[in-house]
Design a protein around this nucleic acid. Sequence first.
DNA 1: TTTTCCTCGTTGTAAAAACAACAGACTTGT
DNA 2: ACAAGTCTGTTGTTTTTACAACGAGGAAAA
Lengths: 223, 223
Amino acid sequence: MEKYVSVLKRTRLFAGVTEAEIAAMLSCLDAKLRAYKKGEYVLRQGEHLDRITVLVGGSLHIQKDDYWGNRAIIQRIAVGEMFGEAYIAPESGALPHDVVAIEDSIVMLFDLRRMMTVCSSACRFHATVVHNLFFAISEKNRKLVQKLGHISKRSTREKLISYLSEEAKKQSSASFTIPFNRQQLADFLSVDRSAMSNELCKMRDEGLLEFDKNAFKLLQGEE
Amino acid sequence: MEKYVSVLKRTRLFAGVTEAEIAAMLSCLDAKLRAYKKGEYVLRQGEHLDRITVLVGGSLHIQKDDYWGNRAIIQRIAVGEMFGEAYIAPESGALPHDVVAIEDSIVMLFDLRRMMTVCSSACRFHATVVHNLFFAISEKNRKLVQKLGHISKRSTREKLISYLSEEAKKQSSASFTIPFNRQQLADFLSVDRSAMSNELCKMRDEGLLEFDKNAFKLLQGEE
DNA sequence: TTTTCCTCGTTGTAAAAACAACAGACTTGT
DNA sequence: ACAAGTCTGTTGTTTTTACAACGAGGAAAA
């Protein structure tokens, strides 16, 4: 448990709290660890949640498959991010999607009530965490809006440009790698893989970008 | 100001707080009122927010227009809902979209710090509001995911079915009205208006649904 | 090492969406 | 009451996407 304190330290949820303080809070928050193998389901559609979950190792996809096998990747969860937090509210129904481990992953769970209620003496920084909880879910919210911005573009090319530009911006470089393979990127942008692959190559031939597997480089006057 | 206390009473943000208590909290939260005419901008892309905003009258669209005049309606805000709350966090940049009044509207603003920090004696129910703040933003989060579910459908027909089914479910009836005209619905689902109109009529001719302006009725074995 | 599996690009075809343009019904404002 | 403007459906054309199928290359497994 303690080996993940340094990971928690860098999360939005525990921003401004020292490692010693985090370590002290773990029991107060009734923290628990779960490990998942690559491909395993961390959460399944239909489940009811009552705990705050933070990924402390590996990576996850929040995804949904329909009757015909079409997969939609709603969000990718990287180390340090929360997930499922929007479905803890009492009035929210069951989880409407699956959460799957993309590689071997470690998840830490916290008791929501204890996290939201400032306790007595032991945890002086508990109030900070309550604030952080709001800011962390705000961050998720902004990411969803950003994703909406990508997939609400009309054409595959625009979706790609929107996504890749943001990724370049996020990594502060015209050269960057993405955390998806082609099929996953297509599922994320909700387009057909082969059509997307085709469009990528056209863009490459037009000199808009270069790529090799997951490594991309945007050319021309990108801002 | 006091005339809107009954509205606030029914919001997620003030759930479990009596009207008398809300009235008492207004000054503590440094509440302020703003009025907007139909068509006016409530917030503009690029602004920096530092207050919690709740719509207490009218209706708003959160939308974004691109260079070519394509409009994307990200979300519709109804009375009692918060908006912009995800962009109050210190690390969030400027607001990436506009907020526009669709009809004459009234907005109430609250001080975030005072809302998040439990004060001394006066506001006993302040702690409840802190919890509610989290649940309210959770609700927004779920709505965004739901919207993602609609527009990540591949075809216009599927997008329509996804949206209309949800609306029927929300209003607990196969007959319901939607808060959009055709152009707005198209901008919301990010499809072309005429193509969507065409598809709607095809679906009507196939006996899937009936409609008259904003009133829809789903037919056949809808669940 | 060999075999199997997975990823990625490529092509052709069929289906669907975007686009443009217009007419009729209805609203709004004067 | 009239004129201007808006909303909606409709049609035909062009562009784009989805779909299906396959082969090359590389990675993983036997």
